[in-house]
Design a protein around this nucleic acid. Sequence first.
DNA 1: CCTCCACAGGAAGCGCAGGAGT
DNA 2: ACTCCTGCGCTTCCTGTGGAGG
Length: 412
Amino acid sequence: MSIDEVFRRILRSKIFKNRKVLMPDYIPNELPHREKEIERIAITLAPALRGDRPNNLFIYGLTGTGKTAVVKYVLSRLEAKALELGSKVKGIYVNVRHRDTPYRILADIALEIGAKVPFTGLSTGEVFGRLVSKLRGLDGIYIIVLDEIDFLIRKHGDDVLYKLTRINELLDKAKVSIIGITNSVKFVENLDPRVRSSLGEEEMVFPPYNAEQLRDILAQRARMAFRENVLERDVIPLCAALAAREHGDARRALDLLRVAGEIAERLGDDKVRKEHVMLAREEIERDRVADVVRSLPLHSKLVLAAILAASGGGRVAVTTGEIYEWYKKIVKLLDIEEVTFRRVSGIIGELDMLGIIQARVISRGRYGKTRIISTAADPKTMLASLEEDPMLDPVLEIVEREALSKDERNNR
DNA sequence: CCTCCACAGGAAGCGCAGGAGT
DNA sequence: ACTCCTGCGCTTCCTGTGGAGG
C-alpha cells in the first residue's frame, strides 16, 4: 500500500463518520442512564447561581461509570447559565492522578484562576498562599473538582485536602466548593474525620452500568461515530457484554468499539464485525501492557525479567525469594549494582498494582510467609517490550531461553 | 500448643536531579 | 553563585505474622 493510498483511505473512511465521539474525553450532549445523577448534582450546585456556596460533594463510583463526564457536563451547563444570568461561577477541573502531588494540584488551581505560579521551586505552602491571596482579590463561586482524589490521599495524605476544605475561612468575597471524585470507596475510611465530614456534606454513588445500559450508550455514540450500516448487529451487544463483565465500565466499552472500528478500517473491511471486537480486546490489553512495561524504571524491568525467567515465562508461580535470586544473577551479568531485597519486594508490589503480575501473600507454615507471584499479562508481550530497552540486551536471551526451557519441560 | 521460618510491609531518612527565587 | 524546594528511587532498621512441624 503506497503512502498516498494510506492517506486516501483515512481521509474517506468507509467506517467512521466522526471517530472523536468515541474517545475517552469526549462529553456527549446526552448521558443516558445518568439522568438522576445529573439532576442531583445540578440541585447541589444550583445555589451558585444565586451567589451562594454550594455544598461540597463527594462522589464514588467505579471507573467508567460516568462520574467525570456527568460532573463536567453539569459544570459546563452551570457556567453557561451563570454567564446568561451574569453571575460569576467557575469550575476548575483537576485530575489528581495525572498531577499527583499537592504542589501540582495547587499550582493548577492557582493557574486556572490566573495567579502566576512557576512549575516548581516554591514550597507547597507558598503556592497555597498565592492561591489564597489571588482568591481574596476576586469574587464569585469557584467549584474545584478533584478527580481520582484517592491517588492524592494514598501518596501524600489529606493535608492539602484539609487546607482546601477550610480555604473559605480565609476568603471574604469569593467562595470555594469542592467536588471530590473517587473510584475506591474504602479510601474514605482512612481520611481525617474533619476532612471527611467537610468534604462529604453531600455524597453520592454512581452504580455501574449493566449490559443493557451499556448498549444504549454505545448505540447513541455509534450513531454519531459510524457511517450508516457499518456495524454488524452483534457488535454493540458484544462490546457491552465484555465491558459489563468488567464491572460495567463504559469507557472500556467505548474503547472496544472504537478500536474494533479502527481494526476493521485497517483491514480494509467495510463492516465492523464480532471478530474485530475480539481483536480489539487483545490489542487494547497488549497496548496497555506494553505502555506499562516501557515506562518502568530500570530495576523494575530487571525484576520483571527475573520474574519471567524464574517462572518460566509465567508457567509456574514463584516466591519473592526465588525472584530475588534470579534478580541477583541478572544484575551480575549486566554488571550493575543491585538493589536490596526490601526494594525488590517493593517493586514486586508495584508491578502487582500495575496489573502485569499477580502477587498474593501466603504462609507455608514452617517454611515461612511469602508472596507467590504469577504473571497477569501475556509474557510474550512483556518480553517484547523489555527488548526495546537496549540495557537489557545481554540478559534477555537467557531470560527468554529460561522461559522456553520450562515450556519444553512441560511438553515432555 | 508453641516455635520459628521467610518473608511482608511500615517508618525514616538519604542523595540526587531539576527547577526557582535571591 | 547560592539556597531552598520537591519527587524519586533507594537503603536501613524495624515490627508483624500464618501456619507446618515439632
